Amino acid sequence: MITGSMVALVTPMHEDGNVDWDGLTRIVDFHLREGTNSIVAVGTTGESATLDVTEHCQVISRVVKQVEGRIPVIAGTGANSTHEAFELTQEAKGLGVDACLLVTPYYNKPTQEGMYQHFKYIAERVEIPQILYNVPGRTSVDLLPETVERLALVDNIVGIKEATGDIERAKRLIANCSADFAVYSGDDPTAVELILAGGKGNISVTANVAPAKMSELCRLALAGKADEARRLNEELMPLHSNLFVESNPIPVKWALQEMGMIEGGIRLPLTPLSEPSQAIVRDVLKRNKLL
């Protein structure tokens, strides 16, 4: 089971929007050096919605080759087309990832039964650990606990990234699913509470800029050191909040650029961080001694 701090890695880009392969190498090295427990390549934060299929697979391949098995690599392979998600998951398996992360089918607004059949179809056809990803704020569809509980019985479905921030919902899943089904936070501000309630880790945006602290936060929470974990989370809370001052990954990519880690490229329809928001993010980076 993959546990701890899992960075939802950005995809570095040049100002012209092309993928910055040297920047990708730098940030992967950064996470290996700073103690990140796992890398999620080409998830939402990695701009999966605007990378073409070739780029998507190239990013996954580069990360896998660079990591060389030192930590697990999880590939974002979700799509609103079941066939496309199946093909991406199959390709990621061939590239050597440890698991795949599949977001709920966005835009189509399928029923609960439609989502169950979508995830079941892929799990039955690609033999690799698969993590569900529920983020209704971005997809306009909510994978309800009763549907997750059905899916947890399907071979190859090993966990869920629950990004609602609803701790009571997470507790229900932890209680009703088997012990080998992992519930992960997808919401940095509430991750500590989810882990203390029995969650297995956090798939994190904040970890892009503060990997060592996020790794320590998850380590403390997994060890049941609640007071220490909560103190560190309070210290990080302004960073958690202000990295969402505009749509993710706009602020976190700008923060990494300000830190000298990557160039400033981002793809339309996303646009660079506005000047008023730059001041907010710069201030919180300085307060956390990241600048």
Rank of each mutant, 00 (worst) to 15 (best):
N233M: 01
T164M: 07
C57N: 14
V67I: 09
N108K: 11
P211R: 05
A152K: 09
C218Y: 03
G137D: 06
E47K: 01
M261C: 10
R62K: 15
S5G: 06
Q278E: 15
F119W: 10
V135R: 00
E235W: 13
T164D: 04
S185R: 06
E162F: 01
P211V: 05
S185H: 04
V158Y: 08
D22Q: 14
S48I: 06
I122M: 11
K93P: 03
F86P: 02
A210G: 06
L270N: 10
A223W: 00
L239F: 04
V192I: 13
S247I: 10
P189F: 00
D187R: 00
A170T: 05
N156P: 11
T44G: 11
I122N: 09
Q66G: 07
G260S: 09
K171E: 13
R26Q: 13
F181M: 12
L236S: 00
N242A: 03
R70K: 15
I195R: 06
N80Q: 07
A123H: 11
L194S: 03
G199R: 06
G76Y: 04
N80H: 13
V19G: 10
R172H: 11
R62E: 14
K65M: 08
I280Q: 05
S277L: 06
D142Q: 03
A226L: 00
S241I: 15
I27R: 10
D16I: 06
D142I: 07
G35M: 01
F119E: 08
A152F: 12
V7Y: 07
K253P: 11
V63W: 09
A221H: 04
W21M: 11
A79G: 01
V53K: 14
L51S: 07
D227G: 05
G137Y: 08
K93C: 05
T3G: 00
V158T: 15
L220A: 05
A163P: 04
A191F: 00
E168V: 13
